[in-house]
């Protein structure tokens, strides 16, 4: 047990250590990223304030609770930049160049390697700003935040990370069949923008789509509600269930794709 944990930690250390320093050579990126985070945050707050002008609200949420949604969105976006985007875009390249073979011959789960091989530091500003905004919005919350709801909220956040990861990975897996699929991730990204705002602000048909078809509700709205202590245990249960289901789908779909790869490639 200890050896296994040590093995994975050591592997992760080397995964992320390499490449980190070379990324930092692109100094322009540092400034661009910091300005982009500030700019996007200002813009988002500006849009939110417009929704709340003249005493109006967004889907019945207080401004402060909408901030919680926005903070979780910013945090998840940072994770996407750090892990999902850099790693999963490589799957397409591995398939194109035939270097997937090398990864399949490594004595490590190929899904683990493909998902975590690279750590790109450019998402860190978003992650930090997201966490800061989350703490700020929770500290100003009208209702009292209990330790229980923080604990459950963190679980919900983990579940939303798992769902987000699975969506990306499932999409990236299809590159085994369709090499040009990478552009489809742009579509996914553009849809996920809907998670910037509370789900109840959408018309009912879209709300159903964003809950059951493309679970955007579980990415930002449900964790926010849980943090504030306004969610039902049904949604907590549903979120965990969705997390498990999507993760399992991503694992089995990857295995299925590999079976196809190993029996069809030459």
């Amino acid at each position: 047990m200890y050896r296994t944990i040590h093995y994975y930690l050591n592997t992760l250390y080397w995964f992320w250590y390499t490449g980190f320093s070379s990324e930092l050579e692109y100094r322009l990126n540092v400034y661009v990223e910091i300005f982009a985070v500030i700019g996007n945050l200002t813009g988002s707050l500006f849009v939110l304030s417009m929704f709340y002008s003249n005493g109006s609200t967004l889907g019945g949420w207080t401004f402060n609770n909408s901030l919680t949604v926005l903070s979780i969105y910013t945090f998840l976006e940072g994770l996407t930049t750090c892990f999902l985007h850099p790693n999963l875009s490589r799957i397409v390249r591995h398939v194109q160049h035939g270097t997937l073979d090398y990864i399949l011959l490594k004595p490590i789960q190929s899904q683990l390697w493909l998902s975590l091989r690279i750590f790109s530091p450019w998402g860190i500003p978003s992650i930090l700003v997201g966490i800061a905004l989350l703490i700020y919005s929770l500290s100003r919350s009208a209702s009292l935040i209990s330790y229980m709801s923080i604990f459950l909220g963190i679980i919900m956040l983990l579940s939303s990370i798992v769902i987000l990861y699975s969506l990306w990975f499932i999409l990236a897996t299809t590159s085994i069949w369709f090499v040009k699929v990478w552009n489809a991730t742009e579509v996914l990204r553009s849809l996920l923008v809907a998670g910037r705002y509370p789900i109840s602000a959408y018309p009912s048909m879209l709300r159903a789509v964003f809950t059951f078809l493309l679970p955007i509700a579980f990415l930002t709205s449900v964790p926010s509600e849980v943090f504030i202590g306004q969610s039902s245990s049904f949604y907590v249960f549903l979120s965990i269930l969705f997390g498990c289901i999507f993760l399992l789908i991503s694992i089995f779909f990857w295995r299925y794709a590999l079976r196809f790869y190993t029996s069809a490639s030459s």
């Binding site: 417009m50 929704f51 002008s53 003249n54 109006s56 967004l58 889907g59 849809l191 923008v193 809907a194 705002y197 602000a201 959408y202 018309p203 879209l206």
Partner: peptide, 14 residues
């Protein structure tokens, strides 16, 4: 997406 949000908002009327 923005249309979906604004169509439900009262701000538009105001």
């Amino acid at each position: 997406i923005m249309l979906a949000l604004w169509s439900k908002s009262d701000v538009i009327g105001s």
